[in-house]
């Protein structure tokens, strides 16, 4: 059978203004799998995700989602190829209520999750649906950030540091939710500093250094690689 990944990134070069930050990233995300990108701070993990969703000031190379080339596509059309983006800074609209944040994104497919299911996964959000987004705690903001893209119905969830700065209880909660989504067949691409969080979730790992992918391996080979991984990301 032909290998047909959902997302295919080839030789992605990226710039912020004048500074060249991605030097040819290549990776692929197979359907229904979870891929984690590991690496130290500042090696280009976040930039890779931003390059995929069209947030770099310049990008070359190739990013194909379901076979459709995203480089050069108008930014507002990229979501419709099936990508849901959960940014590192969470991107909650502070002047909008929780409910308005949840209803903000256009439906990109009929996979969009119902409010009932969303509130089932994140009961806190139900209690706080009338609150302004800006008044939520960090954990609640992260839940809202994930919940609202699920409403849109993406095929691929792109998550940037979903556990950053959150308490262990919230991290566990988010881990349970992402595992449930994975069981439902959702494809995920994840950048994570919390290695222990990532290893319970991912099927395949990519290691980045200085704007490139330097290694990749399947989850089952992780134990054999633990020493190299540790030395590279410093866990």
């Amino acid at each position: 059978m032909r290998y047909d990944p959902l997302l295919w990134v080839e030789n992605l070069q990226g710039w912020y203004g004048e500074s060249h930050i991605l030097h040819g990233v290549s990776l692929s995300v197979p359907r229904a799998q979870t891929i984690a990108i590991l690496g130290r701070n500042g090696v280009g993990k976040t930039s890779t995700l931003r390059g995929i969703v069209g947030l770099l000031s310049r990008a070359t190379g190739s990013v194909r989602m379901n076979g459709t080339e995203l480089i050069g596509m108008p930014r507002h059309r990229i979501a419709y190829t099936g990508i849901g983006y959960v940014p590192e800074e969470r991107g909650i609209y502070g002047s909008l209520s929780v409910q308005e944040n949840l209803d903000l994104l256009p439906r990109i497919s009929d996979r969009g999750m119902s409010l009932e299911r969303i509130f089932d996964l994140f009961p806190n959000l139900k209690e706080r649906r009338r609150a302004a987004g800006g008044t939520l705690s960090g954990g609640e903001q992260q839940m809202l950030s994930i919940a609202r893209v699920l409403r849109a119905g993406p095929e691929l969830l792109v998550l940037d540091e979903p556990t950053e700065g959150l308490s262990p209880v919230i991290v566990q909660h988010i881990g349970r939710v992402l595992n449930a989504l994975k069981k439902d067949g959702l494809t995920m691409l994840l950048v994570e500093q919390n290695f222990h969080f990532a290893r319970h979730l991912a099927d395949h790992f990519y290691l980045m250094e200085e704007g490139r992918v330097v290694d990749d391996f399947a989850a089952r080979d992780l134990d054999a690689r633990l020493d190299t991984v540790s030395s590279l990301i410093g866990v």
């Binding site: 947030l55 991107g91 002047s95 909008l96 209803d103 903000l104 994104l105």
Partner: peptide, 25 residues
């Protein structure tokens, strides 16, 4: 209205709103 919510959201962070699939231009 939901149009108004998009407008307010675009006032806060329009680039992210575009990534979500809203035709900000």
């Amino acid at each position: 209205t939901s149009l108004g919510a998009k407008l307010r959201a675009a006032t806060e962070n329009s680039r992210l709103l575009e990534v979500f699939g809203v035709n900000v231009p």
